[in-house]
Design a binder for these strands. Structure first.
Lengths: 147, 147
DNA sequence: TATTGTTATACTCTATAACTATA
DNA sequence: TATAGTTATAGAGTATAACAATA
């Protein structure tokens, strides 16, 4: 019996979700080596980049609903990778900062992710990668705004 | 290590998951107009393309675990978009075929998805789109095989 | 009255173990 | 014994409503 799935492969959305789904399994495995999930790494990354930011800002930047952020931040805090301090400006809010251990974890995990980035884009030229990034950005922008 | 203002945006994986996540919301909304989910549409598409195939083949092609296929196939069947008939070769298996209504639903939904494909790739040339598809295919292949 | 962080909860999507009926 | 479809269930990931403390 002939079985082909050419129809779906014509669709940008299908290719996108298919490629991303498979790639994300690999990223998940890499993060797991550091005891991290994808969202946890993203949060740590932004806290390293913007020490002192608040959960509300973190959630907005990463499009993570605040209830879902609580467990992530608690996990990073409990394991000593970030510190929560009550904001001096607003006693409702917490300022989030990486610890030395958190910074080191970020550096190690970031390097591992860059390595995987190179693996999954193997066979592309430098220009290909740049063009690919641009197209993803364009696509994201279109998906947000063409509503 | 220099920490830029856009650390996560440097990462292929982050851009990929970010763009895909936002795009999938749009596809979800389009499919919902036809009473379909993304996976349900994929299944209908493959059944239209390959009338007579079995659930096991469907699941393998689309990387859907067979338990998760049961509800999808039941839904399409209950709503009269496909027919299940016991295979003459193997009485454990069902052959899946689209009905006339299922074929029409597929055509309508497919056209709507193609329209959304064009919306989210707006601003890309025809060559850009082709290159983008190629790179997604390359990436998927790398993600599967560089393990 | 509005906002920050939180709790509880629910819904989707996906993954695994084990059953039944056939092979 | 192996396979096709099924059932039950569990785990991520994500979403909304409502609360206490503070603004």
């Amino acid at each position: 019996m002939k079985v082909s799935d050419n129809t779906l492969r014509e669709l940008t959305g299908y290719r996108l979700q298919r490629a991303t789904g498979i790639a994300m399994m690999r990223y998940k495995a890499v993060f797991a080596q550091f005891g991290l999930r994808r969202t946890t790494f993203s949060c740590l990354s932004l806290i390293v980049e913007t020490p002192g930011l608040r959960q509300s800002q973190l959630g907005e930047k990463l499009s993570i609903e605040r209830p879902n952020l609580v467990g992530i931040v608690e996990d990073l805090n409990r394991r000593g990778f970030i510190e929560k301090s009550v904001s001096s400006e607003d006693r409702r809010a917490y300022s989030l900062r990486p610890t030395a251990e958190g910074l080191q974890l970020f550096r190690d995990a970031f390097a591992a992710v860059q390595e995987l980035d190179h693996q999954i884009t193997e066979g592309m030229t430098k220009q290909d990668r740049t063009a690919f990034h641009s197209m993803l950005e364009k696509l994201e922008s279109n998906a947000v705004h063409s509503d």
